[in-house]
Computed example of a mutant assay.
Amino acid sequence: MENVRADFTSGRSMEPALEGADALYLNLAGVGDPETAVQLVGAAAALGVRRIVMLSSYAVTDTALDEENILLKMHAMVERVVRDSGLEWTLVRSGGLAANTLPWAEPIRATGVVRGPNASVAQALVHEADIAAVSTQALLDASGTHQGTVYRLTGPESLTPVHRAHFSSKDPRRHPPRRLGESMTAAAPSGAGTSPRRRTALTNVRVFDGRELRAPGTVVIDGDRIGTGPSRAREIDGGGAVLPPGLIDAHVHLSSADNLRQLCEHGVTTALDMAAWPTDLVDSLRNVPGLTDIRSAGTLAISADGIHATMEGIPKDSIVTGPADAERFVAARVAEGSDYNKIVAESPGSGGLDQATLNALVAAARTRSWTQD
C-alpha cells in the first residue's frame, strides 16, 4: 500500500495522486466542495481508473426535491457526474454517521450535560465500519456485481439525540430518557448536575380556545408541555398574530414528500395515512425533518369480491380470504411497521369482508394493542 498526499485546494493537477489507481472512493465531505469532486472524477476518467464508489447522502431522492436543499443538491449533482463519467460506479447513500456523536464525549465527562438542536428528530445512525465494509466490497469487485447499483444504508434502530445521550451515559438506569422538544438538554450520570429545560414564551399572541379568539396573551412552551407562566423563559413577541395549534388530518393517502409539504404549509403537523404502499415509500415519509409527522396503516384489508379489489395497484397482500387469514394479515402489517390496521367494511351485498372476518381482524389487532379504522 502506497500513501499519496493530495491537496485539493492547491490548484495543482490531481493526476499524480491517481496514477496507477484502478478504483476511486469519493467522499464529498473529504474532497471539500462539489466542483473539486467533479474535477477529481474527470481526472480519474482521464487516467484510466475503472470504477468509482461514491459516499453520498441517504436523503437523495432522484427527484426535483433534491434541488430544494443545498446539501442534497450538491450530492445529487456529483452523483450525476459519476453516473455520466463512463466508468463503473456504485453509490453508497448513507444515513447519519454514528461518528458524529463522538464530540459528545467531552461535555459528558466535563459537565454531564449534552446540548444540541432537533432533540425530537429520530435517526438510525450508521457505524463507519458498516459503511467501510460495503464500500470495500464495491471497490474491490472486478465481477461487475455492484456496477450501477445504489445502496441505501441505515443503522439498526432509529433513536432521537436524547435517547442516544441517554445510552451513551455510564449508567443509563439512573437517568431515563426524556422528550424535550426541539432544544435538547440531556443529562448523563456524571454527578455534575443537570440543566433546566429551555423554556420559550410567545408573548402578544392570540389563541382560539374552541369558542372564541382570545385577546393577546402569552403561551409558554416548556419542553413537551404548554403553559402560561413566563418565568425564566426566552421571549418572542408575536406582534398580535394568531397562534394556531398543530392540526391533525385524520384521513390522508400519501404518495410522496410533496403531500407532507402541502400538509405542513396548511398547518397540519400530524397526518394519519389510511393506506399507502410499498413499505419503502411509507418509511421514506416518516420522521422527515421540517415536514408533517405521519402514522400509517400501510396495506389495507379488503375482500377479493369487493370494489376495492378492482382498483388498479391494490397489493395482493391486501386480500383477506376469511377469519383464518386474519392473523396472517395483522402479522404482516406489524412486520412492515404499520401503526394500525385499515379494514374496509363495504355495504351489505357489495362483496366486502363478512362479519366473521371483520371480527377476526379486530381480535388479531387487539392482541397486539392496535387500533382499527
Rank of each mutant, 00 (worst) to 15 (best):
T203R: 12
A360F: 05
E19C: 03
P278L: 08
R214S: 12
S169A: 13
I221D: 00
A301Y: 06
Y25G: 13
G144F: 05
D237S: 10
A186F: 04
T279N: 07
D171P: 04
A17D: 05
A105E: 15
W277C: 07
R173C: 08
S183W: 06
A165D: 03
R286F: 01
R80P: 05
G191Q: 15
D62I: 01
G246C: 02
G298Y: 11
L18P: 07
G148F: 08
E157Y: 08
L40M: 13
G20K: 10
A43Y: 06
D84A: 09
R328K: 14
R225F: 05
E128C: 00
Y151T: 02
R178V: 12
G155Y: 03
T200S: 05
T160F: 11
G48R: 00
R206N: 05
L97M: 14
V4A: 05
L254P: 01
S190F: 06
A332V: 14
P289E: 03
W104A: 11
S284H: 11
W104M: 14
M54D: 05
G95W: 02
V242R: 08
L40R: 09
D33A: 14
P323C: 06
G337F: 02
F8P: 03
T101K: 10
A29C: 04
D222G: 09
D354T: 07
L18R: 09
D130L: 06
V242M: 12
S255Q: 15
M54V: 04
T299A: 09
V242H: 10
R12G: 02
G217R: 01
P323M: 08
Y58C: 00
V38L: 10
L300I: 11
G11R: 06
M1A: 14
A122H: 09
G32Y: 08
P177R: 00
A332K: 13
D273S: 01
G42P: 02
G298E: 12
T270G: 04
V344K: 01
T367E: 15
A59I: 02
L263I: 13
R179T: 13
V134I: 02
S350E: 07
R83A: 04
R93D: 03
A21G: 02
G48K: 00
M274E: 15
S256H: 11
G210L: 10
I52Y: 00
E182Q: 11
V242L: 12
L65Y: 15
A124G: 03
N118C: 04
L72P: 07
T145M: 10
R295S: 06
R109H: 14
D325A: 12
R109Y: 15
P103F: 05
Y340H: 13
S255L: 14
N287S: 08
H127A: 01
L102P: 04
R109S: 15
N100Q: 14
L260V: 12
L358G: 02
T63S: 12
P245R: 06
V320I: 13
D33Y: 09
V53F: 06
A363Y: 11
T321Y: 13
W277H: 14
L55N: 04
V126N: 01
S135F: 01
P278C: 10
R368K: 15
